[in-house]
Design a protein around this nucleic acid. Structure first.
Lengths: 212, 212
DNA sequence: TTACTTTTCCATCAAACGATGGAATCAATG
DNA sequence: CATTGATTCCATCGTTTGATGGAAAAGTAA
């Protein structure tokens, strides 16, 4: 029952996990085609055939990476959901944005890989079913009227918020020189701006809805 | 004085322009490493050596593509700026979001390439200086107090807005199945949502600033 | 036509890439 | 110790990729 990925996640010291971790970073930075198995193997200090021994083909390793980061992301989202449950909307959003931003700045490959997966195609036909969080987040943020279905509008709103966060993490190397700030200041100004831009409209709408 | 790119931009019927146009699409969809010169040549119905004859190395072609889309983008931004000049902030933002969204949905490679350029590295050492629009947009939107300098905060705000737009264009193939809408409805709901999310906070802040 | 230039294709190269078979090494168990 | 299984490396294969030289074709001007 234990898949290779589960094994690797349980024992972070294993070579399997070591390779997976490095693969996350490289695939995140250079994308699927921009990353070679030799790059990963060299960084891990092993031969590329050892990599193949543990994870099979490049495609298989990439799929494992995608599944891996989606598990991490899902766990983090659940943890955040618990923290904000029951609070008023503005606090819910502020805390969620802070927490997710901190987390993603710590593991930027997650944002990198999510965005790569959104925005680019791959020549190799790899079909990976990725868990879909938009509906859950929409529910957690109280954007769904109906308990069961989530409207397209609500999902689009969630995507707008999530992507806004991912962008500043993945785009750091490009954006930070533009604003000319050190990493610490960049992170703090990003968090401020995200909260400023993203929260206002939602809170305002909620006010109007309650008053009517 | 006429660079190859300028030539190609002036005569859209030429083989040079034809290759450039196809290269835009492929580099936008598959990224730099995900695109092969053979793919582009095949799509253009020519031999890859003909491609090389016109544009030189792959790196050179890619650079030409980046410069090309940045010129297009710059021209579009200037055109939009003229339309919104003098209007109140909420209208300025609404019109700009509408216009840019329409434009980018028509030429999605532009968003694709911009985001690729933001979020991913390339193995080949290609250093392209890309024109930087954030300061101009910030000025055009009235986010700069000082005439000459643009604060980091203002630039980050501009990036947040621009990226929000790019995301929904580049992410269409991924997001549209999630919301399960046809293209027309997707575009319209994206525009609505962008205006809803992005405009509110800025207008609200301006109100407060004026009243104080 | 002829002479010359521009453009295109064909054949091919060297390097990089993903992948594999098999020998060598290490670890665990009796 | 010997045996077995798991792990790692080395050598190498077949393809793909970017790139080039040179012939063929198309276009231009006298």
């Amino acid at each position: 029952m234990a898949t290779p990925l589960e094994k690797a996640r349980k024992d972070p010291e294993s070579m399997k996990a070591r390779i997976l971790h490095i693969a996350r970073r490289f695939f995140g930075e250079y994308g699927y085609h921009g990353t070679t198995t030799r790059m990963i193997a060299k960084e891990a200090g092993i031969d590329s055939s050892t990599l193949h021994y543990h994870w099979g083909d490049k495609k298989d390793l990439y799929e494992a990476v995608i599944v891996d980061i989606n598990k991490d992301l899902g766990q983090k989202l659940i943890a955040v959901e618990k923290r904000i449950h029951g609070l008023p909307l503005d606090q819910r959003m502020a805390i969620a944005i802070d927490a997710m931003t901190d987390y993603l700045f710590k593991f930027p490959e997650v944002s990198n890989l999510v965005l790569f997966h959104y925005f680019s195609k791959t020549r190799d036909a790899l079909d990976l079913r990725v868990p879909e969080f938009t509906a859950d987040i929409a529910r957690s943020m109280g954007l769904t009227r109906d308990r069961k279905t989530t409207s397209p509008r609500a999902k689009i709103e969630v995507l707008a918020v999530m992507n806004a966060i991912h962008n500043f993490i993945s785009g750091e190397k490009f954006f930070r020189p533009i604003v000319n700030l050190n990493r610490k200041d960049y992170i703090s100004i990003v968090k401020e701006t995200l909260k400023f831009v993203l929260i206002g409209s939602f809170v305002e709408r909620e006010k109007k809805q309650k008053s009517s």
